[in-house]
């Protein structure tokens, strides 16, 4: 199981990366952490002509807080996110999600940007980004643009990224006063991709929820913002009745895709159970 032949280049600047992308288009692949790309190469599921290794581009690294927004560089490793006090304090949803992302050796290499750009529908970080209303900064020789997470994910492994574009960083609003997060996923084995997962983010005043944002993963072909379920809790005090309303509304938000790991109906059921439990936890956390 050996990768097919390809060429390799390790540019030293972001500018050079963008030039190479512009020149080679879909014949090139960006090599960041490689934790998803390398298996597809080894299995010959993907046969690019050129790998552009961005691992030494300093401009893509780091996690920082600027004016109430956390900037997460595309090259921030999963391990960095897991260990970052800044993430723990300002992005507790992501901090809660990180232990579920694969295993230590994968987290040491895998990158935030790689996970977002790959857009695996069962991955944790894309859904976290949706729930947190993150924005992604995309760059190409044509310039830079910022895309909200909710409109970034188009479908199975499909995103807003054009062939010549690179995901540079995410800008994620830091946890504001009165807000809480809750994360739950259900996987067969620790570190596996989830059969269902839920990211919750909301303001809680007493028991009353507002600005409720539920995002699901592991259900459809992309992370899904659960608008109806979020609305079902909006402005209401958390109760058993509201929980049932959220779970019922989720049926309108989600149209899960079944496969041999779990049917569509099971995935919807699990998403509902997790949503109820995640909100229970969030409400209880105060």
């Amino acid at each position: 199981m050996k990768a097919p032949r390809f060429s390799y280049v390790r540019p030293e600047s972001l500018e050079r990366v963008l030039e190479l992308l512009a020149e080679h288009g879909d014949e090139a692949r960006i090599l960041a952490g490689g934790q998803s790309l390398m298996p597809t190469l080894n299995m010959r599921l993907s046969e690019p002509r050129l790998l552009i290794d961005i691992n030494r581009i300093d401009a893509l690294k780091g996690i920082s807080l600027e004016d109430g927004t956390v900037r997460v560089g595309a090259l921030a490793r999963h391990a960095e996110l897991l260990d970052s006090p800044l993430v723990a304090e300002h992005l507790p949803l992501i901090a809660a999600a990180m232990p579920h992302v694969a295993h230590v050796a994968v987290r040491n290499r895998g990158t935030f940007g790689g996970s977002i750009a790959l857009a695996d529908p069962a991955a944790e970080l894309p859904a976290c980004a949706v729930a947190l209303d993150a924005a992604f900064v995309l760059a190409s020789l044509r310039g830079r643009r910022t895309v909200p997470a909710r409109s970034f994910f188009h479908g199975l492994y499909e995103t807003e990224l054009a062939e010549d574009e690179l995901l540079v960083e995410a800008r994620i609003p830091a946890l504001a006063a009165g807000y809480r997060s809750s994360f739950l996923e259900f996987a067969r084995r620790h570190g596996d991709f989830a059969l269902a997962g839920i990211c919750c983010h909301a303001r809680i005043d007493g028991a009353v929820l507002s600005d409720v944002r539920l995002a699901c993963f592991g259900s459809e072909d992309r992370p899904r913002f659960a608008g109806a379920a979020s609305a079902a809790a909006e402005g209401r005090a958390w109760s058993g009745e509201v929980k049932e309303a959220v779970k019922a509304a989720l049926g309108g938000d989600l149209d899960p895709i079944g496969n041999f790991h779990a049917s569509a109906a099971t995935r919807l059921h699990l998403a509902r159970v997790l949503a109820g439990r995640a909100l229970d936890r969030m409400a209880a956390a105060g």
Binding site: R188, R189, H190, G191, D192, F193, N259, F260, H261
Partner: peptide
Amino acid sequence: CRHDEEGQMLNATFADYLVPMAAE
């Protein structure tokens, strides 16, 4: 070992054929 009705194995990887791991 999951096969479809045409005999194609559906889970022929370590990601999909679930070998017990330490945590469980």
